[in-house]
Simulated assay, not measured.
Amino acid sequence: MRNIFLLIFAILFISCKEDVLPKPKAYLSLVYSTKSYENLKLKRPYSFEVLKNTTVINEGDNWLTIKYPNLKASIDITYRPVENNIKELLTEAEKLVFKHAVKAEQIIPKDFVNSKKRVFGSIYEITGNAASHIQFHITDSTKNFIKGSLYFYVKPNYDSILPAVDYIKEDILRLVETLEWKK
Rank of each mutant, 00 (worst) to 15 (best):
19 D>V: 12
19 D>E: 15
20 V>I: 15
20 V>Q: 09
21 L>F: 13
22 P>V: 00
22 P>M: 07
24 P>T: 05
25 K>V: 13
26 A>G: 14
26 A>K: 11
27 Y>D: 10
28 L>M: 11
28 L>S: 09
28 L>F: 09
28 L>A: 10
28 L>V: 12
29 S>G: 05
29 S>V: 14
30 L>Y: 08
31 V>G: 08
31 V>P: 02
33 S>K: 11
33 S>W: 04
34 T>A: 15
34 T>I: 07
34 T>S: 13
35 K>I: 00
35 K>M: 10
35 K>V: 08
35 K>Y: 03
35 K>T: 11
35 K>R: 12
37 Y>K: 01
39 N>A: 10
40 L>G: 03
40 L>Q: 07
41 K>W: 04
41 K>I: 03
42 L>N: 08
42 L>Q: 06
42 L>P: 02
43 K>P: 00
44 R>D: 07
44 R>P: 00
44 R>N: 06
47 S>F: 09
47 S>A: 11
48 F>Q: 05
48 F>V: 02
48 F>M: 10
48 F>A: 07
49 E>Q: 12
51 L>Y: 11
51 L>D: 04
52 K>N: 10
53 N>K: 11
53 N>I: 10
54 T>H: 03
55 T>P: 01
55 T>S: 11
58 N>K: 01
58 N>W: 07
58 N>G: 05
59 E>K: 09
59 E>V: 09
60 G>H: 01
61 D>E: 15
61 D>S: 09
62 N>G: 02
62 N>D: 14
63 W>Y: 12
63 W>V: 05
63 W>R: 09
64 L>H: 06
64 L>P: 01
65 T>I: 15
65 T>S: 15
67 K>A: 14
67 K>C: 06
68 Y>A: 01
68 Y>N: 03
69 P>F: 09
69 P>S: 09
70 N>V: 09
70 N>M: 07
70 N>Y: 13
72 K>E: 08
72 K>Q: 12
73 A>H: 06
73 A>G: 10
73 A>R: 02
74 S>Y: 03
75 I>S: 00
75 I>F: 00
75 I>H: 06
76 D>S: 05
76 D>K: 13
77 I>F: 06
77 I>Y: 00
77 I>N: 03
77 I>L: 14
77 I>E: 01
77 I>P: 01
79 Y>D: 03
79 Y>T: 01
80 R>W: 02
80 R>L: 13
80 R>M: 14
82 V>Q: 03
83 E>C: 05
84 N>H: 07
84 N>E: 11
84 N>P: 01
84 N>S: 12
84 N>C: 02
85 N>E: 11
85 N>W: 06
85 N>F: 03
85 N>M: 01
86 I>S: 04
86 I>D: 05
87 K>I: 10
87 K>H: 11
88 E>L: 12
88 E>V: 08
88 E>P: 03
88 E>F: 11
89 L>D: 02
89 L>W: 06
89 L>P: 00
89 L>N: 04
90 L>F: 05
90 L>M: 15
90 L>I: 15
90 L>E: 08
92 E>T: 14
93 A>P: 05
93 A>F: 01
93 A>W: 02
94 E>M: 07
94 E>R: 12
95 K>E: 15
96 L>K: 14
97 V>A: 03
97 V>T: 08
97 V>G: 01
98 F>N: 14
99 K>T: 06
99 K>C: 04
